[in-house]
Design a protein around this nucleic acid. Structure first.
Lengths: 210, 210
DNA sequence: CGAAAGATCTACCTACTGGTCGGTAGGGCG
DNA sequence: CGCCCTACCGACCAGTAGGTAGATCTTTCG
């Protein structure tokens, strides 16, 4: 029962509740009850609710950036590399739906809840991706598109499916986050971006890591 | 100053604040202050905060469904019709960013804040769209795709840009909701779905209503 | 004019929030 | 044994939430 440090247990519970109900919609009592202690004990590990939220958010951000950094180092060119990055992002999001909802809540509100400059952290990666896409386009590996717009689209499609899963559940037949549905979604996204970026209509679709 | 009924003024302010800060993040005092009255006066027009939110949400939903119904009656076939519906949805969302953020918040949380069965309302339209897409595919007007997945993608791309505009602002150069950026986004989405659904790589791209 | 109705306010209530204080149980260690 | 430290909790505090009661003012209508 006491396998992991209480501090981490609290962080996990807080992540889940903040993602589901938002910052204002989650009280320290809720978090405390979720891990079987009382509010003062939560405040024993974290100086304030703001600080707790800050740690939750920073942990999410570092996990996320770590994944992005790793996948951007992946070798290959053109479609091979694009699909690899897309897939690793997709996998990360599927494995951490709480992160996605947390991120989306922050994006909706502008992301300046704490001093965390969300845009400042993400922008370098965004710019690097823009540059790479444009290079690949002039090199003829990709069809020409507005690279920034395309990346915003990729962001929206990747996040949207996971963040809105509770809603999408009702529209699709099965649980949107069930394994087989995730595979279908993944293949669909690959197919879409392949059509968008690669001109050959009948070119074979390479799926990595299947 | 007193041009419109106070009831409607309150509804507008509540829509804006609920969209920006969420249900728990918005107090009746905030709403009252926003329209220059005190809290008891707000409760004079609406029996409770829940009731106020319910009316805000129902008004949004009916506006939205009205637009969808109208645009689904649009004539034409294949790409012509698809792009018309896409554009009318895009225009509605751009004109009502508060609706989009409100909708997205509800989608994140599963949409059962009140008894409103969000999925139940949307599902018929979704199914109709699925059927139409599949018919057009077998008729050869569209390339084959998983129609449900494609619609989810369209939903995510349309909503995402507007709901996350505060965040995207920082990634793009200009204000994401500025007129010229909206035009760019619109054209980008048309281009994308054209590439996805229409096989001819060099086919002319018809833009309606420009 | 006077009664009624509507809109708005101040004052108050209870419930709950984040946060602090003082204390207690228990384990390691001299 | 006494000492200290960590983990935890009950009780309390000030502030704010949603909501109610009652008074005041204005408008409308007979």
């Amino acid at each position: 029962m006491a396998g992991r440090p209480m501090r981490d247990v609290i962080l996990d519970e807080a992540t889940e509740l903040f993602a589901r109900f938002g910052f204002e919609g989650t009280s320290l009592n809720d978090i405390a009850a979720g891990v079987g202690i009382k509010r003062p004990s939560v405040l024993h590990y974290f100086p304030s609710k703001d600080a707790l939220y800050g740690e939750v958010f920073e942990r999410m951000l570092s996990d996320w950036l770590e994944c992005v950094e790793a996948s951007m180092k992946s070798p290959g060119r053109g479609w091979e590399r694009f699909s690899a990055v897309l897939l690793s992002g997709f996998d990360l999001f599927c494995a951490n739906p709480s992160y996605v909802r947390l991120m989306r809540r922050e994006a909706i509100e502008g992301g300046d809840r704490l001093g965390i400059d969300l845009v400042g952290v993400v922008a370098p990666f965004f710019e690097a991706a823009v540059n790479w896409l444009e290079e690949e386009m002039v090199a003829g590996h990709f069809r020409k598109v507005d690279a920034r717009q395309l990346l915003v689209t990729a962001y929206a499609t990747l996040l949207g499916y996971v963040s809105d899963a509770p809603f999408i559940n009702g529209l699709l037949i099965d649980d949107a986050l069930a394994p087989e549905m995730l595979v279908a979604r993944r293949d669909h996204l690959l197919e879409l971006f392949h059509r968008i970026l690669v001109a050959d209509v009948d070119a074979p679709l390479t799926i990595l890591g299947a």
